[in-house]
Amino acid sequence: MASRTTHPVLGTRALNRATLARQLLLRRAEMSATDAVAHLVGLQAQNVKPPYFQLHARLAGFRPAELAGAMEAREVVRMVTLRSTIHTHTAQDALALRPLVQPARDREVNQFRKGLVGVDPERLAERARAFVEAEPRTMGEIRGDLLEQWPEADPQSLSVAARCLLPLVQVTPRGVWGRSGQVRLTTVESWLGEPARPAQPVDDVVLRYLAAFGPASVKDMQLWAGLTRLKEAFERLRPGLAVFRDGNGVELFDLPDAPRPDPDTPAPPRFLPEFDNLLLSHADRTRVVAPELKGRTWTANQAHRTLLVDGFVAGLWKKDGDLVTVELFGRASAADKEEIVAEAELLVTGMGEEDGADGEGNGEGSGGRGRVRFGSIHG
């Protein structure tokens, strides 16, 4: 095996442009919402709105109604998968990716074993499955049913166990733009009317990760997936991969024919929602977030909406009707501000009003031009 010193070095801007290209953020793609969700291997979705904004930043002509329709048609679903967080996945990925990460979810249950003394995990899973497959239930209802069987158990531990042991999906109208709904859960097999599938082979998922997030290290993918011991998969694939290293000497893998644009390729401004996977899927995030801005896109455990300028995080933003408020971390040129205003207008016309906490609005765009208010963030 060749020494790592023989591998070409990719600087920060080269990594930035390569990642933006895979993420469909250098230019909007002519792609359906469902195809984009598959290409991106899911969209992180703790909240209802972020998946819609993620696709608006990436797809030409996207309107929220497209993803909402796919969700109502059960072509995409919301469920806990990667990193034990809720993601929007295609139906196929929901069936095949959840089994891949199931061992990690099983280990998560073990962290709550003190609250599960006397509880048989297999019996818990069987009882909870029967309960939610009879009809979709809230987590409170699931917990209450389990407490009838195990009254001495810790209620929160029972909730975690059900969430981890079963592939539960949030049924519509939850997650549908323009509608609100309490979180109700059933199994992915029941919701989709399909039997459980074997886990997608990890080697295949490595290749899909690199297609959407590469070039990347083993540690990068482990963080993205919430899995460990992936080095063996990368080593199996090494003969067919391109290998690089970053400025710190970390080995990076990539698909040989994947796009790696010139570092000087223009990158237009993009408004990203909270929890966008672009900012959460690499152990070293300096390809998108400058070191001096580390931690500035979060308050406690809440992520903020971020603005990319020249491909890098440059500020935060909020939207109130047709007013987009941009708070910059530093100075922006007049040309940059002009591009930011144009992108904000696309945001307003494409995404429409944002009434209500669960993504209310008609999903057809406002038809009006957006207004932009600039501010700055100091310190």
Rank of each mutant, 00 (worst) to 15 (best):
D254C: 06
R208G: 07
T299M: 10
R78D: 04
V313K: 00
V109L: 09
T265Y: 01
K219Y: 05
A211T: 08
L168K: 03
R113V: 04
P198H: 07
L279M: 12
P268A: 13
T186S: 15
L227F: 00
G144D: 14
A216N: 11
R179S: 08
A196Y: 14
S32L: 07
K49Q: 15
K337F: 09
D358T: 02
R58K: 02
R371D: 11
A94W: 04
E148I: 03
D203P: 01
R74H: 07
R74G: 02
R63D: 15
S366P: 06
L207A: 02
G69N: 05
D358E: 15
T172R: 12
R287Y: 15
A73T: 13
D204G: 13
L124Y: 02
P64I: 05
Q54Y: 04
L158Q: 03
L241M: 08
T138A: 10
D203M: 09
E274Y: 06
Y52V: 00
E194S: 06
A29V: 01
L185F: 14
H87G: 10
V77Y: 05
D204M: 06
R236W: 04
G359H: 06
W317Q: 00
W177L: 06
F131I: 09
V372Y: 02
T299F: 13
G370M: 05
E235N: 13
E354D: 11
W298R: 14
D203E: 06
R174G: 12
W298V: 11
T187P: 01
G175H: 08
L278I: 04
V169M: 09
N277A: 15
R238P: 04
V41H: 14
R229F: 14
A334I: 05
F329R: 08
F271V: 00
G140S: 11
R287W: 12
E232R: 12
T299Y: 14
L272F: 03
L82W: 01
L40M: 11
A267N: 07
R127L: 10
R236G: 02
